[in-house]
Simulated assay, not measured.
Amino acid sequence: MKQNLVDYYQLDELLSGEHLLVRDSIRNLASVAFGEGIDKWAQGHEGIPDLMPKLGGMGVLGSFIPQQYGGGGMDQISYGIMMQELEAVDSSIRSAASVQSSLVMFPIYEYGSERQKNDLLPSLAAAELIGAFGLTEPNHGSNPSGMETVLKKYKDGYLLTGAKMWITNASVCDIAVVWAKDEEGQIRGVILRKGMSGFAVEETMNKWSLRASKTGSLYFDEVYVREEDLLPHIKSMRGPLSCLNSARYGISWGVIGAAIDCYNVAVQYSLEREQFGKPIASFQLQQKKLAEMLTEITKAQLLSWRLGVLKNENRATPQQISMAKRNNVQMALQVARESRQVLGAMGIVGEYPIMRHMMNLESVITYEGTHDIHLLITGQDITGMSAF
């Protein structure tokens, strides 16, 4: 088995030549750009130097946005593969790419004016602008419809008041797509720019997870918003939820990369580490762990591939996306934990990526919809009855 290549069901046969080229290219580029430094940055709670420009240079920002707006014009499977290879290095890298692509570029493309698209999307694709997405609030996480951030009419524009938290790229963003409730109770998307009066950011520190990711809060104290800075083609919760669906889809692929990285380390270590006079790979309990990990990774690969096909055909439902996000993140977290067991005490040190992946995945299982909420979304789809 080649390192970093887990394909037990010959899934490569279902991928196009372009897909395979994308995978191999992003794998190599991400390894060179981030592989050697990622443990140092995570251990030091440091941001990754030149992260966004490097991602822009790789072509992973807005890969599914049409080329006329600076995107890659690629399909959804290509996007998923890119997220997989970035998260194989670290979830913080995939998070940054996911936010820029699915939570900032996607709503501007889907709901923005032609002027907004032309002015912002090419710069976002090239990482000349860094974007953030403001939905989660201090008092409203799983219940975004209860948001307290408000948009009130003022002269020929609006005043925005409120706060958002747990925002990736908050402290480094040039623009932010923020969701707020207007005076009619409708959910509106607004585009803010760094330096606007009343718009402040604060970085979140002392995290045990996603330590190489720039996370923070956004504060709005009567920020004046022009009419032209509202996303004109959406006035409902469908706006932010459609963004989350795009991001959740990417996560379903991304976490497979983290799981594969942990699994490969566990396999290699088990073949080299000897106890009782023979490699630990020869013992039944270690083989059980490895066999179960490979099985779950394979199931997740098939789930995300099929979801990608449905996405390409515009047939994927939010409920299907929820199932894949929940299942695959739980799978990756379990693989990380089992891999750590295979390595014993060595599993906790920085020379190996497993504990870093494990701690990152503790965030991924919560953001973009918690594990429990995604279960209830599936339950509602089954029964027709909402449990929340």
Rank of each mutant, 00 (worst) to 15 (best):
I77D: 13
I167N: 15
V6D: 05
V364G: 05
G347C: 09
D50Q: 08
V349S: 11
Q334H: 10
R238W: 07
E274R: 01
S242D: 15
A345L: 10
W166E: 13
G141Q: 12
L15F: 15
E85C: 09
G350H: 04
L376E: 14
F220L: 02
A300F: 11
K54L: 12
S95I: 06
S145A: 04
K311I: 06
L230R: 04
I167Y: 15
I48M: 12
R211D: 04
D221Q: 01
Q268C: 08
Q10S: 10
S92W: 00
D381T: 14
N143G: 06
G112C: 03
Q67M: 09
Y8P: 03
V201D: 02
P49R: 07
W166Y: 12
L151G: 07
P318A: 09
D50E: 15
M346L: 11
L192N: 02
Y9G: 06
E85W: 12
S145C: 02
L361D: 01
G112A: 05
S242T: 14
G112N: 04
M205K: 15
E36V: 03
Y219C: 09
D261G: 00
D50T: 13
V60N: 13
M83T: 11
L120N: 00
K181N: 02
K289N: 15
I260P: 00
V6Y: 06
L135M: 03
V6Q: 06
E36I: 04
V255L: 04
L159N: 05
F199K: 13
K311G: 07
Q284S: 10
F220N: 02
R211Q: 03
V364F: 05
M358C: 02
T215M: 14
L271W: 00
T370C: 10
D156H: 15
V172G: 10
R306F: 07
S282M: 02
L20C: 06
Q330C: 13
C243I: 14
E184R: 13
A30M: 08
L61S: 14
I167P: 08
G254M: 07
G56I: 15
G162W: 06
Q380K: 01
I377M: 13
V104C: 03
V32Y: 07
R23A: 03
S63D: 00
F283S: 11
W305P: 06
R326L: 15
L210E: 00
V342T: 05
D39W: 00
E137M: 07
Q268G: 09
M346H: 05
T370H: 10
A127C: 09
K214A: 12
I26R: 06
R248F: 12
I251Q: 11
Q76L: 07
M359Q: 03
T366E: 08
D261E: 02
A42R: 01
E292Y: 12
M346S: 09
Y249L: 08
I297L: 04
G35V: 04
A132T: 09
S145Q: 04
G239Q: 11
Q268M: 10
R248S: 15
R27C: 12
Q100E: 08
